[in-house]
């Protein structure tokens, strides 16, 4: 087994390490091409695994998206080191996520396993659940916040637009007015978010 995995890693080092790195960088910077390539190379395997283990193709879609988000967050973090192939990583994550879902739904353990190498992804998944929860809370808070606040905050913090640009887009007379409005919105959002957060606890 050790010999076998050594062979794989040698092969991997020689052939695809650069292209895989490039793919991950592309993913981290939201490049459509990189995302598409990862989908093309891995989606069918994941779907086969899930569909043969009590799942529908739609389940495969959700699980794969979740795995892509985890990979994306991993790729973005500064401490990220590529320790295995993207293929292996995605399969390991999807497998773990799906097994967890099966257990939650009491659908039993999988009868079917692909003969794929897996790596330990527990650490990555631990933080993921919390982040996923936060993401949903933020989404709800933003929805509750409503327009134009939501738009202003997204323009500022997500699209990183400058205050004069925002003032123009949202019809404020000057950047300072827009800024004042932005902070009001931000404080309201914070209030809603933490209120929900406490409710959730």
């Amino acid at each position: 087994m050790g010999y076998f995995s050594t062979l794989i890693s040698i092969n991997y080092n020689l052939v695809s390490i650069d292209s895989e790195k490039a793919l991950l960088q592309g993913l981290a910077s939201h490049e459509n091409g990189a995302i598409e390539t990862i989908y093309r190379e891995n989606y069918a395997t994941i779907q086969a695994f899930i569909v043969r283990n009590n799942g529908f193709p739609d389940d495969a879609r959700d699980i794969f998206q979740e795995a892509m988000i985890i990979l994306f967050e991993k790729a973005k973090s500064s401490s990220f080191v590529l320790s295995c192939q993207i293929k292996t990583y995605l399969y390991s994550v999807c497998r773990r996520l799906w097994l967890k879902k099966l257990q939650q739904n009491n659908k039993g353990f999988p009868a079917f396993e692909l003969l794929e190498e897996t790596v330990s992804v527990e650490e990555d998944l631990e933080g993921h659940e919390q982040r996923d929860n936060d993401f949903r809370l933020m989404e709800q808070a933003l929805m509750q916040l409503g327009q134009p606040c939501q738009g202003i905050l997204e323009a500022c913090y997500v699209q990183k637009k400058s205050m004069p640009e925002i003032a123009e887009a949202f019809g404020y007379t000057n950047a300072d007015n827009a800024k004042t409005q932005k902070y009001k919105c931000l404080m309201r959002l914070k209030k809603i978010f933490f209120a929900q957060y406490r409710k959730g606890d």
């Binding site: 939201h30 459509n32 995302i35 598409e36 989908y39 093309r40 989606y43 879609r61 998206q65 892509m68 988000i69 994306f72 967050e73 973005k76 982040r131 936060d134 993401f135 933020m138 989404e139 933003l142 905050l153 997204e154 913090y157 997500v158 699209q159 959002l189 914070k190 978010f193």
Partner: peptide, 26 residues
């Protein structure tokens, strides 16, 4: 921390959008 959260949310929302588009295309 809150700002970080907000930014992350934005990123993730953008990524989800991209994933959906990619899925649709493929």
């Amino acid at each position: 921390a809150f700002l970080h959260q907000l930014e992350q949310h934005g990123e993730r929302a953008a990524l989800k959008q991209q994933l959906n588009e990619t899925e649709h295309r493929l």
